[in-house]
Design a binder for these strands. Structure first.
Length: 472
RNA sequence: GGCGGCGUAGCCAAGUGGUAAGGCAGGGGACUGCAAAUCCCUUAUUCGGCGGUUCGAUUCCGCCCGCCGCCUCCA
C-alpha cells in the first residue's frame, strides 16, 4: 500500500488508482526559455522516483510532462537573441532533454507542447464560455473566478482575502481582478494563432488542463509540480477543468519542496541558481541524485557545493559496497550455518519507507544499515578466509538488494561493476604483473605501476584476497 | 496582514505517545612492504524556549522566539 501526502486534503492518504493497476500522472514541465537549474532537477528527479516506485509496485504509469513553449518570457528571449520564438523553445527543449537524459530521468509517456495543442485549448475555452464560466473582453478571454465557488480550495485561500491584496491596474479588461486569462490577444509583432476571439495565444494555466485531458482523460490520478505552482497555477487548473467537466480534475496533488541557497529559494529572479549543466561538470548525475534524495521530497533542501561533496563521499560508501562481490567470490566455503545477514528485514524496511510517502531518506538509511552489517560479516570472513554457504548467499543477496534498490531509485551505477572490455583486461594484466613483482619484493617497480595507473585514473587497492581497482 | 511550513549532535537528515535511523566531518582501531583506499568502533540523558494534557512528550495542545515559502512569473 502506497501512501502519499495530498496537498488538497493536507493529509497523508492511501493511494488508490482510478482504474486497475494504472497511475495517470501529470507533472508540470518547464517553460523553455533558459537552461534548467537544480530546482528543476529536483522536481524532475522527485517525480521520476515516484514514477519508478509505482512501477516497482506493479503499476503501469502513464506519465505526462509538458513543455510550455510559448509565453511572454520566451517571446522576450527571442527578441534578445534575435531569433524566432520557436527556435528559442527548440533550443531549450533540447537542453532540457539533454539534462534529463544525463540525470537518468525516465522518458515520459507523452511530452506535449503547448504550440501543438492550440486546437484543444481553443475548444476548451470555447466550452467554458458556452457554460458561462468565461467571457471575452477586447480579444482576451478570462475565467470568471466568482462562478466557481470552490476557488481557493487547493491553496486554502478565500477570494475575499485574495481581493484584499489586489491592486487594480489601469486599463484592466477583467470584470473581477481575480479573473485570469485563458486567451491573450497578441500585441503588434507578437506570435499567435487564429481563434474566435482574436489572433493570440493561450494563457498559462489552460494549457495544462487541455493537454492533460487529451492524454489522461477528464480525471487523472496524480498531478505534480513544485510547491510554487500551487497558487495560482494549479488552483486555476482546478477551476477551469472542474468547471468544464464537472468532475474531479486530479485525485491527488503532490508537490515537491524548493531547493534553497543560503536559506533562500533558488530562482531565476534572485539569480542564485546553479544550472544542471554546470553541476554535472563537477559531479556525477548519481551524486546529484543522491543529494536530492537525501531529504524528503516535500522539505526544502539547502544546496551547496559542500553538501554535494558530502553526497559524493556518501555515494562512494554505496558503490564501494557493490564492489565486494568479487572479494567474496574468492572465499573458501566453510561447513555450517554461520551468521548470515537478515537481508529480508532490510528489504522490508526499504520498501516500507518508500511506500510511506516516498521516504527516500529513510529508505537510503536502511540500505546503509544493511551495508554496515554486510561489511561486518565480510570483514570477519576475509580475516578467516572462509565463509559458510548461508553467509555467502546472504552477502550476495545483500548486494542484489542494494544494487536493485539503487537502480529502482534511478541511480545509474555505471562502471560500478566493472565493464568487460579490452581496457579492463589490460588493467588486470598489469595488476597480475605487479602482483608477481610484489612477491619478489621488487617494490620500486610495483609502485611504479601503481603510480602510473593512478595518473591514468585507475586506483589500485591491495586487499587480503588480491588487488582490485576502480576508476577515479 | 492572510495562508502554509520548518527549528533533532560540528554539519546534513529520518523518526515515534514509551525513552533518538542513517550520511558527512572528528576521535580510536583493523588491514598493509610502504601507501592509498576500504572496513569496524565511537560521538545527542537529548530533539528552539516556556507552560499544559498524560503513568510517560522530541512526538499532542497553548504561548513565545528564530527561520523560510506562497499571496506577481517561478520546479
Amino acid at each position: 500500500m502506497i501512501k502519499l501526502t495530498d496537498t488538497l486534503t493536507e493529509k497523508k492518504v492511501e493511494f488508490k488508482p482510478l482504474e486497475g493497476k494504472a497511475v495517470k500522472m501529470y507533472v508540470c514541465g518547464p517553460t523553455v526559455y533558459d537552461h534548467a537549474h537544480i530546482g528543476h532537477a529536483r522536481s524532475a528527479v522527485v517525480f521520476d522516483v515516484i514514477r519508478r516506485w509505482f512501477e516497482y509496485r506493479g503499476y503501469k504509469v502513464i506519465f505526462v510532462r509538458n513543455y510550455t513553449d510559448i509565453d511572454d518570457k520566451i517571446i522576450k528571449r527571442a527578441k534578445e537573441e534575435g531569433i524566432p520564438w520557436y527556435e528559442v523553445a527548440e533550443k531549450y527543449i533540447a537542453s532540457y532533454e539533454e539534462d534529463m537524459k544525463a540525470l537518468n530521468v525516465k522518458e515520459p509517456t507523452y511530452k506535449p507542447r503547448v504550440s501543438e495543442h492550440i486546437r484543444e485549448i481553443i475548444e476548451m475555452i470555447d466550452g467554458l464560455i458556452e457554460k458561462g464560466y468565461a467571457y471575452e473582453s477586447e480579444g482576451d478571454v478570462y475565467f470568471s473566478v466568482e462562478k466557481f465557488p470552490e476557488y481557493g480550495k487547493l491553496s486554502k485561500r478565500k477570494t475575499e482575502e485574495l481581493l484584499a491584496g489586489v491592486r487594480i491596474e489601469p486599463g484592466e479588461k477583467k470584470r473581477n481582478p481575480l479573473d485570469f486569462a485563458l486567451w491573450k490577444k497578441s500585441k503588434e509583432g507578437e506570435p499567435g494563432w487564429e481563434s474566435p476571439w482574436s489572433y493570440g495565444r493561450p494563457g498559462w494555466h489552460i494549457e495544462c488542463s487541455a493537454m492533460s485531458m487529451k492524454y489522461l482523460g477528464e480525471t487523472m490520478d496524480i498531478h505534480g509540480g513544485g510547491l510554487d505552482l500551487i497558487f495560482p497555477h494549479h488552483e486555476n487548473e482546478i477551476a477551469q477543468s472542474e468547471a468544464y467537466t464537472g468532475k474531479t480534475f486530479a485525485r491527488y496533488w503532490v508537490h515537491n519542496g524548493f531547493v534553497m541557497v543560503n536559506r533562500e529559494k533558488m530562482s531565476k529572479s534572485l539569480g542564485n541558481f546553479f544550472t544542471v549543466k554546470e553541476i554535472l561538470e563537477k559531479f556525477s548525475p548519481d551524486v546529484l541524485r543522491l543529494f536530492l534524495l537525501s531529504t524528503h521530497y516535500r522539505s526544502p533542501i539547502d544546496f551547496s557545493i559542500e553538501r554535494l561533496e558530502e553526497a559524493k563521499r556518501s555515494f562512494e560508501r554505496l558503490t564501494n559496497f557493490l564492489r565486494i562481490r568479487e572479494v567474496i567470490e574468492g572465499l573458501e566455503i566453510l561447513e555450517g550455518e554461520g551468521s548470515p545477514v537478515n537481508v529480508g528485514a532490510f528489504r522490508k524496511e526499504f520498501e516500507e519507507a518508500m511506500d510511506d510517502d516516498f521516504n527516500t531518506a529513510r529508505a537510503l538509511g536502511a540500505l546503509f544499515e544493511l551495508i554496515r552489517e554486510a561489511n561486518l560479516l565480510k570483514d570477519r570472513a576475509l580475516k578467516e578466509g572462509k565463509i559458510t554457504k548461508a553467509e555467502k548467499f546472504s552477502l550476495l543477496e545483500a548486494l542484489d538488494l542494494v544494487e536493485g534498490a539503487l537502480k529502482t531509485l534511478g541511480f545509474r551505477l555505471e562502471g560500478e561493476r566493472g565493464e568487460k572490455g579490452i581496457e579492463d583486461e589490460l588493467i588486470k594484466l598489469l595488476i597480475e604483473v605487479r602482483g608477481e613483482l610484489r612477491k619478489k619484493k621488487e617494490f620500486a617497480l610495483a609502485d611504479l605501476i601503481r603510480d602510473r595507473l593512478k595518473e591514468l585514473g585507475i586506483a589500485l587497492e591491495d586487499l587480503p584476497t588480491g588487488t582490485v581497482y576502480k576508476r577515479i
